[in-house]
Design a protein around this nucleic acid. Sequence first.
RNA 1: GGCCCCAUCGUCUAGUUAGGCCUAGGACACUGGAUUUUCAUUCCAGUAACGGGGGUUCAAAUCCCCCUGGGGUCACCA
Length: 526
Amino acid sequence: MTVRTRFAPSPTGYMHIGGMRTALFNWLWARRNGGQFILRVDDTDQQRNLDEALGPILDAFRWLGLDWDEGPEVGGNYGPYFQSQRRDLHDAALDKLIDSGAAYRDFEPPEETRSQREAAEKEKRVYLSSRVSVGLSEVEVSAKLTADDAHVVRFLIPRDRRVSIDDNVRGHVEWDCGLMVDPVIARGDGSPLYNFATAVDDGQLQITHVIRAEEHLSNTPTQVLIHEALGHDLPEFAHIPFVAAPGGKKKLSKRDIEKYRKSPAFQKLFQLGDEVLSATGIDPAEQSLSPVMVAYYREVGFLPAGVLNTLARLGWSLDDKTENMSLQTLLENFSLERVVKASAGLDPDKLMSYQSYWMGRLSADEKLKGCVDVLVRAGLVAEHPDADMLALVDAVVKLAADRVRVFGDILGMDEFFASTESLRYSEKDFQKRVVKPEQAVDLLRELRQLLAVTDNFTADAMHKVVEEFIQQKGIRFGQVAPALRLSVTGKAKGADLFPTLELLGREECLKRIDRAIGTAESMKVV
RNA sequence: GGCCCCAUCGUCUAGUUAGGCCUAGGACACUGGAUUUUCAUUCCAGUAACGGGGGUUCAAAUCCCCCUGGGGUCACCA
């Protein structure tokens, strides 16, 4: 039998990173077994703007390179792939269940049901459906239907049974039906509810493996029972652990973003993200983007490979030592057997480590393209840059290769793209390395004269000049380099100093040094 | 609270199905050192875990029981 897996997102306007991991495992399992991966959109609730709500989800799949064999945009033989358009299927299944007596129309007022439930809770007794409507005769039921009495359809739980599954991750799990409430499977108007619609759809779509997050485990007995009543072959189940928040054990959730912002484990990621996002004109506080969403990583300049690698290693391992895995490697080795049972916290440090690894293996062309893209978005480089600009960016990227872990890091090297006037100095560092040290400004002035007259303004030549200068003065390199770097780049850290000077060019360097000297002196006077 | 799930370094994990090769391996993070005339990179080294208690056995991280702890879920949401 062909393996068929599915991912069934509700169109929420964003793709959750944990959901993406579930989707990845589904995709991997289908592809590994030469089967099909299906995207079904669970939009039972009337969606306001489907494009807006579904677009970001499909974008996330495309970005990561996960294709789907059936679903939105591509169609397929088991469609429609929007749950809202499958109503006739649900209706037919509902009729079947009612006719066979597996489900019943419940006319009990909701308030009554609720108060019974509350009473049971108060008395610490298990609540079970009253089933008063089950005793109604056919004539009574049709009378009530004709009178348009409000009702819901409930599935009749066989209370004398136990349901069990042999979960591909969790092993044998069993439930006592005698403890289960008859679940509502459809509203009075016949519109289906999740547990029911899912069973109908999974059956009709011939899904062989339901791979989903652990929080769905408690829905499983109901769905199994509905599958049975509908005469479906039961799919295999695999309940994978959910993705937890960094440093915690709780499910990673969009609602807790503000909490995450303050969490030490998340700090560095947020800081990086805030810098890149605000530089590219996105307000990070607006919450339209956060590390809970896949799009966040794309905007900050992560690589699909880095994100994919991180996701795959969250709850799964190939063996006792393999860490860096491409999608291809994952594809060749993925197995449900090696999925871990315990929930796993997303670790931003490890994410960054995988990311750096894959960034390091990226071709020069792709790296350049990614960096240019961010620079353009940040307005540091004009759209459709000319060859000179491309060459400059390329040179910067190569010069600072180790520093560009995500494309957004290139924004931290704005000194190469800023003019003398617009270059910003880190005030604190400027004080510390230029203003405060005794002779810093004097040394800088002398050095400036030397740099102004070297034959070639190359890294090597400059290196030699500075070398001779400090020997002659009897000082250490550390007494001139920091001030020089700060004057020219505005920062205390950066790529190799001399190649940086060369890249900036003599004229620009001298202007910046002059500006720095001027600024430092005016500060000293005050 | 009911039901269900889970439990190895700070974190992600290997080892648990077939008990001995485990004085518990790897990775990230952290600390120290080397290289780098700055920062970063790179390299080397180090710190660091089987939640507790009972069994079974010649032998238990691995099997059984209990406890503790953590988590998920309990809608006419999906």
